[in-house]
Simulated assay, not measured.
Amino acid sequence: MKKLQAKMDRLLNKFDGSWKVLPLKVQYKYLLIFFLGYALLTMGMILKVVHDTRKSNQGIIIEHIENPAIKKNESDTSLWDSLLMIKKNKTNERK
């Protein structure tokens, strides 16, 4: 873990040094390009969410969450070995 941290520190120091070597105008251009890209992605996602919510006329459907472990499928029962299944004895049940 210490080796990985040392490698990351060296890499970040290398990138930081090469960033500081760039002229301020070039740094400003890179910063502006990255900010505009981030802003475009953010606006695109916001517009997509707004479009999707306006498109659906349904309200929010609130349902109970079903536990998939409890759900029994017909095909799953055939996979179980019948000797391993616990079967209830009807004679021992309460009336």
Rank of each mutant, 00 (worst) to 15 (best):
M1F: 10
M1S: 08
K2I: 15
K3Q: 13
L4E: 04
Q5Y: 13
A6G: 03
A6N: 07
K7E: 14
D9F: 12
D9M: 11
R10T: 10
R10Q: 08
R10V: 07
L11A: 13
L12I: 03
L12D: 02
N13M: 05
K14D: 08
K14P: 02
F15I: 09
D16H: 05
G17F: 05
G17Q: 08
G17Y: 07
G17D: 08
G17S: 10
W19Q: 04
W19V: 11
K20T: 00
K20W: 00
V21W: 08
L22T: 01
L22R: 13
P23G: 01
P23R: 01
P23V: 03
L24G: 05
L24I: 12
K25R: 09
K25E: 15
V26R: 15
V26E: 06
V26Y: 06
Q27W: 01
Y28C: 07
K29P: 02
Y30V: 06
Y30H: 04
Y30D: 02
L31G: 11
L32T: 12
I33K: 03
I33Q: 02
I33C: 02
I33G: 00
F34S: 14
F34N: 14
F34C: 12
F35L: 14
F35Y: 10
L36A: 14
L36E: 00
Y38V: 06
Y38M: 10
L40T: 11
L41K: 07
L41Y: 06
T42H: 06
M43V: 13
M43K: 05
G44F: 00
G44P: 00
G44V: 01
M45K: 04
M45E: 10
I46W: 12
I46C: 11
I46G: 14
I46Y: 12
L47I: 09
V50P: 01
V50A: 15
V50W: 13
D52K: 01
T53P: 02
T53G: 07
R54Y: 10
R54L: 13
K55Y: 09
N57Q: 10
Q58Y: 09
Q58T: 11
Q58I: 11
G59C: 04
I60T: 06
I61V: 09
H64L: 11
H64Q: 09
H64M: 07
H64I: 06
E66I: 14
P68C: 00
A69C: 04
A69G: 07
A69S: 08
A69M: 06
I70R: 15
I70W: 15
I70P: 09
K72W: 00
K72T: 00
N73V: 04
E74M: 07
E74H: 08
S75R: 13
S75H: 11
S75P: 01
D76S: 04
L79V: 09
D81T: 00
S82H: 10
S82K: 13
L83P: 01
L83T: 15
L84Y: 08
L84N: 11
M85C: 05
M85P: 01
I86L: 14
K87L: 02
K88W: 03
K88R: 07
K88L: 06
N89C: 03
N92G: 02
N92L: 14
N92T: 15
E93A: 04
E93C: 03
E93S: 02
R94P: 00
R94M: 05
R94A: 07
K95I: 12
K95H: 09
